[in-house]
Every structure is written in structure tokens, then in C-alpha cells.
Nucleic acid binder design. Sequence first.
DNA 1: TGCGCTTAGGTACACGTTTAACTAACGCGA
DNA 2: TCGCGTTAGTTAAACGTGTACCTAAGCGCA
Lengths: 331, 331
Amino acid sequence: MAATIKDIARRAGVSTATVSKVLNRKDSVIGDETRQKVLSLARELNYTPNSLARSLVTRKSHVIGIIVPDILNPYFTELVRSCDDAARLRGYTTLVCNSEGIAEIETAHLTSFGGHRVDGILLAASDVVPDTELLDALRIPVVCMDREIGPLAQLVGIVDTDYRSGAYQATRHLIEKGHTRIAFLSGAPHRSNTQIRLSGYKDALSEAGIAFDPDLIRCKEFQHRFGHQATLDLLDHTSFSAICCMNDMLAIGAMVALRERGKRVPEDCAVIGFDNIYLSPLLEHPLSTVDRRIAHSGRVATDALIDFLDDADRTLTAVTITPTVVSRTTT
Amino acid sequence: MAATIKDIARRAGVSTATVSKVLNRKDSVIGDETRQKVLSLARELNYTPNSLARSLVTRKSHVIGIIVPDILNPYFTELVRSCDDAARLRGYTTLVCNSEGIAEIETAHLTSFGGHRVDGILLAASDVVPDTELLDALRIPVVCMDREIGPLAQLVGIVDTDYRSGAYQATRHLIEKGHTRIAFLSGAPHRSNTQIRLSGYKDALSEAGIAFDPDLIRCKEFQHRFGHQATLDLLDHTSFSAICCMNDMLAIGAMVALRERGKRVPEDCAVIGFDNIYLSPLLEHPLSTVDRRIAHSGRVATDALIDFLDDADRTLTAVTITPTVVSRTTT
DNA sequence: TGCGCTTAGGTACACGTTTAACTAACGCGA
DNA sequence: TCGCGTTAGTTAAACGTGTACCTAAGCGCA
């Protein structure tokens, strides 16, 4: 069907090796006339190299696999987009998989990555613990983004966000606006993910001489729905004038709850989010939040991975991104 | 590195053909003992078939390529997610590319699809006209989703949304709520995409005996930003009590503008969107909109494509989805 | 005995590339 | 004349599978 190197070779009256050399710019040793003939035939037949065959022999697929829990989550959408852009810029293609935050699904995807011989793997934040045994067997370089992982030989990059600092800054921002009763919403309470943010929150409070009140804390999951439900619950059981949300979806949920109860934002209750997803400035009340530079972190992670793949012997890259508060209308 | 069929064959003392047969369940003709030996060795070496090699010989990659203008747009995020789910369910993997709505980029992606020997292509809505010449040369089955395309031999599926009906219903919904001055926001004015929706809008108006007023129409692009800007402009130049937006992002933009000008939704101005992206119920004012069954349409399109790929000679599938109004808080 | 069928598996090529190693022709200096 | 270095290619193997076709043994049966 599609033209192959053989077709070109036959018509040009040369061997496939010659064609291959010309097409790969390894043609220092090829005559000018032959080169031209091959090149023009390639164009004429509109030849496209079969990457399957090529990858098979070169043992490089120029594909990198990405695993996220759910691309519908705007944070991951944005992250994936930036990874994909960065990858393409360097001649790589991405294969994106949704793990649903379920270990078995992630494992299946990793296995499939192995079968497709991806050159590298990007692991985005998730609460499931990566199957290091499988990863080890796969021998494919891995970069983790805000994701805890055990010791792993082929871990070649780590890009983390300084959650403590982010939470600290968000809380401090609220305190500076005069708030003292500040609720705190986050994900799974036992994960370090949440613990570390909580410590940032506490630091800011104690620095300001405000007592920590456990009644103001609600930690369960990073979903919109929980932000809504927790806010309603807070409203019923305690008093506060601000909510510090550990991601933007929680903040969006909180704002719906506040409106349902007739509370104005920010007059009656201030809200700050975390992530700065691209939606946050677009909301009816553009959301104050903590910018964690999503696109930048995706780019950095991808570049680290590809640097490793392209340059022979490279060492582990570790970057931590410090987020900053962006104040909009909700605080 | 990774175990191959050869490794298994050697250890089992059989030929690679035998191993291949066992592993592919073509083993009616293989002895039970041999089968077990092969199977257990495969497990032991944790063998994963090399899909590159396999695809090379079978001429089936079990990959389908998807092109969307921009996955950051929630409509496309949701669409891609549902296509991916549907594809995996049937043993296919997806390769997602962003065209930015630029013809050259789309062409590059299509070429790359050819190189990767994808089995089928899913083309999502976009204003650029597909490169049918290239598509023709590629000889890869294509399914279009809400996308105009010229005659094309390997077009095997079309799933469209009845935009006219959607726009008609949205307008009618507004009229039933008592509105008579209804603004209309949509994308590129000359595209049939917008024209057809406009006709639905006009039909509803004339049916209700309301005169069409061109001053209430603003068509340019389907971006949040334009929704915001157009609403401000409308507010400055005319009067109206409702806005009919031809996608949800426009509606979100419109609502920001209304809030900036101190207008309450829906008391001072009602707003209806189109698409029913997953975000629309989550907004501070859960958005009334027209549900176009995004996930369903992705699934239908993907299934149509794979039906074609799996069953030998199938004919073109054409589905049109009729959207329905979902009334929430903004009308 | 000769024939055919069944069972169990092997042989060998193909898929489309890349690449190390080889060759053939030529020119040139000693 | 011989040897050597260039130049411009070619040959052949390899990557990991799938599969059409072959073989060989065993058995039943006329």
C-alpha cells in the first residue's frame, strides 16, 4: 500500500541501504546525483517511514507514556497538554493513559507501555503507590511529578511542588486580609500530600498567633463534590470567614455551597484555591489561588526525561517548584 | 532485555512458531504438555509481546489516532476521554493530537498517523477543512464527529449533532421563560456550524412571533474571552433579558461580564449555554444548557470506527444526535 | 502392503527498516 | 607493477512476530 524504502530503491536502481542512508542524512558518502534521485522519488511516492519497522530495529520508539488518574480533571488536562507540547518539540509522541487512581489499571497501562516499547514514562500525581517491581522489570526511565515513589533504579527525574510553602502562603494571604477563622479543605487526610500542606497552614497560623482549631479542618478527597459538601457541613457546625482550599476544584465546590446559603464571596466569606488551573480566572468570581505553574512543571518533567533519553549518561534531575499566591476576586 | 518469543522457545525446547501459536490461542493443534510449558515460561520471564513487531507483520497496530483542536477545551477533553474509554474496551489504544485549529499542524499529525500505521482516525469538530487529498493517500478509515468533510472514500462514519434543533430548543426555552429580547452568541459567522444554529434560533423566534433583531447577534469564535467581550459590548449598545450562547465557554464568559456590570443571573439576565460540559453543573450558578451527549457521541463514533475495522466489509455509519435542554439555575 | 487421516510441531519467509562489513573501481605515488 | 586510500555504493543480518506450508509419526483399514 504505502510506499516503502524498497519501492524507492527499485525505481532508483539502487539498494535499500542507499535509500536509507539518504533519507537519514547519513549521506556524506552518497553521490549527489543518487541523492537527488532518491529524494525526488521519495517525494513523488510520498514516502513516510514506517515507524514500527524503524523502532523495531533502532530500539527507540520516540514515544513517551504518560499516566494520569483522570484527564478530565483540569489540572491533569493542563499538565498533559504541556507534556505533549514539550515532547513534540523534541520529536517525541505521547501516549496518555487514565489510571482512575486504581493500582491495577495503572499496572495494566504500564505493561502496555512495555509492549509498545515506550522510551520513557511520565507519572503524574496520584495516591496509588507505583508498582516499582514492574517498573524495575520494565527498565524504562521514569520521571515522577508530585508523586511519591520508592527507590527505583530507572527513576531519572523528580519534579515536586513545595506544597508546604503553597499552603503557608495561601493561609498567610488570608490572614493578611484580616481573617482569623480560616477553614481548611484538602484530600485524603493520611497522605503526605495533605499532611504537608496542613503543616504549612499551621505554620502560618502560629506565626500569626492564631490558635489551631481542628473543627475547621475537613480532609477527604480532592473533588468538587467534597468541597461543596464540606462547606455545607462547616456552615452548619462552626463559624469562619475564609476557606483555604488545597485545590481549585474544592474551591469551586465551596463557592457553590456558599452561594446556596446566600453568602457573598468575598464579603461574607473569602475563598482561596490551589493549582491555578486555567479555569480559575474564568469563573464568575475569578478565583484567588496558589499558582503552581502547571504547564511549566510538565515541561520541566518532560525535558528532564528526554534529556536523559537523548544524552547518554545523565544523572537524576530533581526540581522543586515553589508556588506563589495570585490574588483575584475571592479574597 | 525484555524476554522474547525466542527466549521462551529456546528454554521450552520448541520452535518459535509453536510458542507464537500457544500465545495467540491458535493452539488447537498443540499438545497440552507443550502448551503448559510455554505458558508457564511466559509467565516466569514475564513476557510481553512486542507490539511493534507484531503490528509490523499483522499490519494492524490496534491504535487509533484522534485529532482535536485543543484538548484544554473541556468539550474536547470529555470527548477524548470517552473515545479513549470506548477504544480500550475493545483492545485499542489512542494517540491524541492537538491541531490548534491550524491546517498545517493537522496535516503533520495525519502524516505522523500514517507513519505510525494507525488503524483508524477520529476527526473531531474543527473549522479547518481536512486535507482530503492526504487522507485519500493514507487509505486509513476515518470517522468525523461534527466535522464537515468533502467526499472521501475511506470515510466510514459520521456522527453529527443536530445543531439546529439544539439552538431552536434553547431559544424556545428562553421564550417560554418570558424573554423576548434574546441575544445570540456563537462562533465564526460564515461557518455552517454557526449558520445552522442561527437558523434554529430564528425559527424559534418567528414561531413565537418575535421579530429578529440583528443587533442582538454576536458571532466570532467559541472562546470564553469572546463571550465576555461580546456581552460587555451588547450591554453597551442594546437591551436584552437573556443570552443564548452556542457553547458553554461563551456562557461562562458572558456570566463574568454580567457580574462585572452588577447584573444578577437569572433575575436581570438569563443565560443558556450549549454542550453541557461536565463543568456546567459545577459553576457557582449551575448553568442551564443544551446537552449534546458528549460522552455518548464519542463512544458512538469510536464504536463505528472499530466496528468497521474489526468486521470486514461494513458500510458507512451515520448517526445524528439530537440534543435536549437541561434547565438549571441560570434561566 | 499401501493409503489416507490425524496429531504435533518445525521451516522459512515476510513485515520495513538500519547498519556493520564488505566490494569494486579508480587514482596516485613509489 | 604494487599497494593504498577514496569514493560510492552493495550485501546481509538483525529487530520480534505471525503464518502458510511442510514433515514425521502413528494409526486404522481395506
